[in-house]
Design a protein around this nucleic acid. Structure first.
Length: 408
RNA sequence: GGGAGGGUUCCCGAGCGGCCAAAGGGGGCAGACUGUAAAUCUGUUAUCUACGAUUUCGAUGGUUCGAAUCCAUCUCCUCCCA
């Protein structure tokens, strides 16, 4: 059986690693307990978290034991790494709410049965710390000079850094120590922006326990243009179906840039690496087809096969003229409203294709709104019952946004 | 604690009494070209009961016929000194 380290490496996950040889040996030898932390900065996981979950899944498949650490405590402070400005402080209630959402979502991806994985929340130990005791036990081991020279504080040295945030690194380091004592956790993994924080924890464990532990970071999901992946005009791409529908989710990957196809296939799907390479090397129509596979596979992992299939069918129906149009997202309007006549701008707004009537109006003026495949020529147009085709209407804005209008 | 500078529309950043819904850039959206890609070009980018009206320039109150622009108080941020 292949060492999971090699798998992660050939798929392009690994960015930095503390002791390559030791880690590789360790992972090949025995069951290793490792952890990744997730701070509850929002009420849903997003694509960046998904990458971390994929790593966990690979590790778990190789027989190692993941600890999912939810940051109910660290979330109260906020990680300054790589941030230009201080995050807004979240209230306790929001943090708690988000923590619960995270726990629910994560349990869909990781198998927690039979002690195969552990869920922990650092609120359990961070919130009740005694300040002076903590300083004496943990604080002594940190050199402020060294911390300040850490890369993750660089940008903040210019713009200002509060003591609150400065402590984040120490809290995260302490997490590692606690998990090491409690579960014999030997590795911390994370996004590459977590490198400094991970090193902090390793140092702390070495100094206070005299034990060697390891750290590994993963490449951040960026587009070939260097932007963070998983952002759209309407915000992040969420894993929560309520916040980003499976169809939208599918579409995001279907529209990915040519240059990013191979990377995404390797990182975000379980397709064999040879297949990934083959698909990534395709050109023209081929690479376009590879995107369909990518979209399907990723959607399948996140939302399940049935939803992935629906998204695919909807897509084929819209863009390929075949397939089942029943799966295209829809909104419902009442037949009495339709009887009275609905202005096209209102309909566009109801359908969620724009966020204001002004925007809807502009879209119509620019020739960007189509009703049942016909360009709507005037924003004064009133939609009536005779616009129904087979009892419904297809409303389109631009080239890619489609919504069915159904009657209730 | 003292001093200096600053908070402008999604973001950056001009404006410093009327010509300001506010230059320019980025981003977004739409159109052309395409492969639901990238690049490029064009238009557009507060809201609405829309040739007009309403709300926006950290907050509140004031001066003025009229304020993003002036004054007062508050608040937050950055820098320098302690």
């Amino acid at each position: 059986m292949k060492n999971v380290f090699d798998i992660l490496q050939e798929r392009g996950f690994i960015a930095q690693i503390t002791h390559e040889e030791e880690v590789k040996r360790l992972l090949g030898e025995k069951r290793v307990t490792f952890y990744i932390g997730f701070d509850p900065t929002a009420d849903s996981l997003h694509v960046g978290h998904f990458l971390q979950l994929m790593v966990m899944a690979h590790m778990q498949q190789a027989g190692h034991r993941p600890i999912v650490l939810v940051g109910g405590g660290t979330g109260m402070v906020g990680d300054p790494s790589g941030k230009n400005d201080m995050r807004k402080m979240m209230t306790k209630d929001i943090v708690e709410y988000n923590v619960n959402r995270f726990k629910m979502q994560i349990s869909k991806f990781i198998d927690f049965s039979d002690d195969k994985a552990i869920m922990a929340d650092n609120a359990d130990w961070l919130l009740e710390l005694n300040y002076v005791e903590f300083l004496r036990e943990v604080g002594v081991h940190f050199s402020v000079n060294r911390m300040l020279s850490a890369d993750c504080f660089k940008t903040r040295m210019e713009k200002g850094l509060t003591f609150l945030e400065f402590n984040y690194m120490i809290m995260q380091s302490y997490d590692f120590l606690v998990l090491n004592r409690k579960y014999d956790c030997q590795m911390q993994l994370g996004g590459d922006d977590q490198w400094s924080n991970i090193l902090g924890g390793m140092d702390l464990i070495r100094k206070s326990e005299g034990k060697s532990v390891y750290g590994m970071t993963f490449t951040l999901l960026t587009t070939s243009e260097g932007k963070k992946m998983g952002k759209t005009e309407s915000g992040a791409v969420w894993l929560d179906a309520e916040k980003t529908s499976p169809y939208e989710f599918y579409q995001y990957w279907r529209n990915i840039s040519d240059n990013d196809v191979e990377k995404c296939l390797a990182l975000l799907t379980f397709l064999p690496i040879d297949e990934v390479k083959r698909l990534g090397a395709l050109e023209d129509a081929g690479i376009n087809e590879a995107k369909a596979i990518l979209a399907f596979e990723v959607t399948k992992i996140v939302h399940g096969e049935a939803e992935a299939f629906k998204a695919k069918e909807a897509t084929e129906s819209i863009f390929g003229g075949k397939g089942n149009s029943d799966n295209i997202p829809f909104v419902e309007i009442s037949s009495s409203d339709l009887e009275a006549g609905i202005k096209i701008t209102d309909l566009v707004l109801i359908a969620g294709l724009t966020t204001s009537k002004s925007e809807a109006r502009r879209a119509v003026q620019q020739g960007g709104v189509l009703l049942n495949d016909n360009k709507v020529s005037s924003f004064d147009y009133v939609v009536r019952a005779n616009d129904l085709v087979d009892g419904q209407m297809m409303l389109q804005k631009g080239k890619k946004s489609f919504v069915r209008i159904k009657l209730i």
